[in-house]
Computed example of a mutant assay.
Amino acid sequence: MEPTVLVDRRDGWRVLTLNRPDRLNAFTEEMHRALAAALAEIEADAGCRAVLLTGAGRGFCAGQDLNDRATSGQAPDLGATLDGLYNPLIRRLRALPKPVVCAVNGVAAGAGANIALACDIVLAARSAKFIQSFARIGLVPDSGGTHALPRLVGAARARGLALLAEPLPADKAADWGLIWKAVDDADLMAEAAALTAHLATQPTHGLALIKQALDASSGNSLDQQLDLERDLQRGAGQTADYAEGVRAFIEKRPAKFTGQA
């Protein structure tokens, strides 16, 4: 039986591919477990300095596999599902101390859309669409959707996307600031791979501190954020990568970062 998440080890980075193409890579508990295990291994591997997440086949992820929700007439506890599966995944992606690139190769719907938005840099094929499909079945956007949407696209667009559940094409998603950029379908994986490979050569600890600062900013006052920047910068200034970056700048050569704290 094919694994539900494929792990491709590259030089300093990894590609994680959601691998249920016959179901548009919709999530099951098995896929959650496989992805959690892959991310845990990446967390523990100092040699892995960046991650690329994508989907097999013609779609990125259709969200939850509703066939996995079949019950004998008893309503499922969806809150328990979020607590046990989706929320830990979103928290892990946001807190991972290395950059995560997402290549959205087709439809990203429901939780699939919001898992993509939990990554650091999102590229999408021009044919891709983002759909907050929850309202179609009487549910609330989850997996961080109600947090990410208004911050990325503003209150009015967030409400429209959530309440109407209309597909948002990749080009418009980029124009609205929902994602980093839309690229031609044929170029998606090559561009995403080149970007991830580049990030794997950068000062990984410094990038982790940038993630930490940006994530904290929405809940901080200006004074709190200035204090956080001071504290993070103090630590960043003590790293070997900072010293190397300065030397390389003075010597007018490319820096050779190790990514270590």
Rank of each mutant, 00 (worst) to 15 (best):
T201A: 14
K172N: 00
L139E: 15
A156K: 14
L228P: 05
I210T: 08
S221C: 01
G219H: 11
G219E: 13
L168H: 01
T239K: 09
Q225V: 02
A135V: 10
A200K: 06
R159C: 07
P150L: 03
I179T: 05
D171E: 13
P150V: 04
Q212Y: 04
A173Q: 06
A173I: 07
A236M: 09
T146E: 14
L228A: 11
A148E: 05
A135D: 04
P141M: 02
A135F: 11
P167V: 11
S218M: 06
Q212K: 13
Q238C: 03
L188P: 03
R159P: 01
G154P: 10
D223H: 14
L228C: 12
L149N: 02
Q202Y: 01
A190I: 08
K211P: 05
K172H: 00
R234S: 12
R136Y: 02
P150T: 02
P150A: 09
Q225A: 07
A124M: 10
R234P: 01
W176A: 07
D187K: 15
F130D: 03
S133H: 06
G219R: 13
F130A: 03
R157D: 09
L168D: 02
Q238H: 04
K181C: 12
R136T: 13
R230E: 12
A216V: 00
T204V: 13
A194S: 12
H205C: 00
A216G: 04
L195I: 00
A128G: 04
A165I: 04
I210S: 08
D142Y: 07
V183I: 04
R126Y: 00
Q233C: 09
A173P: 12
I137E: 08
M189Q: 11
A208L: 06
A182I: 09
A213M: 07
A135Q: 09
L199Y: 11
A165D: 07
D171H: 12
T204W: 05
G160K: 07
A192V: 04
R126D: 13
V140Q: 10
A216S: 07
H147A: 15
L149W: 15
T146N: 07
L163M: 10
L161D: 04
A128M: 07
A213C: 00
L152Q: 06
P169R: 10
D231K: 10
H205R: 05
A193K: 12
A193I: 13
S217K: 10
V153D: 00
R230W: 01
K181F: 01
G177E: 10
A192Q: 02
G237S: 06
G237C: 12
D185V: 13
F130C: 05
W180S: 08
K172G: 00
I137K: 03
L207Y: 07
A182F: 05
A213I: 08
H198C: 07
D231A: 14
L163N: 14
L207V: 02
L207F: 09
L209A: 00
P169D: 14
L207I: 02
V153F: 07
A174H: 10
A155Y: 09
A193T: 15
E166V: 06
A182C: 06
H147Q: 12
A148S: 09
A170M: 02
R126F: 05
V122I: 15
E229F: 05
L214E: 13
A125V: 03
I179S: 03
K129A: 11
G160I: 03
D231S: 12
A190M: 08
L152W: 02
G235H: 01
L149V: 05
H198P: 02
S133M: 08
R136I: 04
P203G: 06
G144P: 05
V122W: 13
N220E: 12
I210V: 15
D231Q: 14
